[in-house]
Design a protein around this nucleic acid. Sequence first.
DNA 1: TTGACAATGAGACTCATTCTCATTTATACT
DNA 2: AGTATAAATGAGAATGAGTCTCATTGTCAA
Lengths: 148, 148
Amino acid sequence: MDRSQVRMSLKSKGIAATKPRVLLLEILWGINAPISVQQLYQSNSEKFALSTLYRVVNDLATADIIETFTSPDQNIWIEIKAEDGHHHHLYCESCETVIDIEMDEEFEASISDLRDQLSKKYNITIVDHSFELYGKCSGNVHCACNLD
Amino acid sequence: MDRSQVRMSLKSKGIAATKPRVLLLEILWGINAPISVQQLYQSNSEKFALSTLYRVVNDLATADIIETFTSPDQNIWIEIKAEDGHHHHLYCESCETVIDIEMDEEFEASISDLRDQLSKKYNITIVDHSFELYGKCSGNVHCACNLD
DNA sequence: TTGACAATGAGACTCATTCTCATTTATACT
DNA sequence: AGTATAAATGAGAATGAGTCTCATTGTCAA
């Protein structure tokens, strides 16, 4: 996804391709992993005003281009929204990092069943769900803290 | 669960049965549903200092007597810890309320499988997980906003 | 009952997030 | 391309949830 593709995708969602929006998406495409707003600001404070960063995150989330979620330490994390629905997350308490996890088909299917079931039972429209795991690594190779 | 039982349960966990701790637990037993710290303070501001409330919530969570979680609007919710593990939650975006939901055995089992699987795959000790659903009620009878 | 120590209350403090508003930028239209 | 206009941004002030401090109070073991 290069800059012009990013601009197109913004326009196709009906929002202006401004500099901070394009830049944020380029960063997210570049790292291809969840990042916290704080972390993002710390490594890019000269590129955005902090208020702009929060606003842009909000704009892009509203436009369904990125998705956000909150880790147990109350940090807001963002990532590009996957076409095939959304990711689930593994939060490592040791390195305070979030890893995207893949679920197998079967598990996804049982979540889908459950949503239907609960929707009927409580007579509520279910709009989304989250499934998150909390773990502790021991500085092992798979943990996101070792990916840099 | 009456006051003396609450006091006993605090002592059995090795923490002092102070007035704010007992009071908080009495309130939680009384409502028997998740409540946000903010909400709790708003309806009991004359009974606790705000700093005490946060401290006591933290103490009781550390002692494994209550459990806490964060809703998408960043509120911290608390409830008595269930003996049979933990609850999952349905957050209603319309009334900004959390409802405890029951899962069937089968789904719980598949979550447990998944935890084992991921623990191996990522070589991480998984300490907890959360599964939450987000919905929109239409002021219907099952939604927690109608329970008062 | 008392002493040692832990917990509380009140308010100051911190810091993430939101708000304000003057300036700049993107886009639609000549 | 040049321009009008509405939207977006930057900088910093304001807000407010949550934490910290410390003098006072309460708990409980002896």
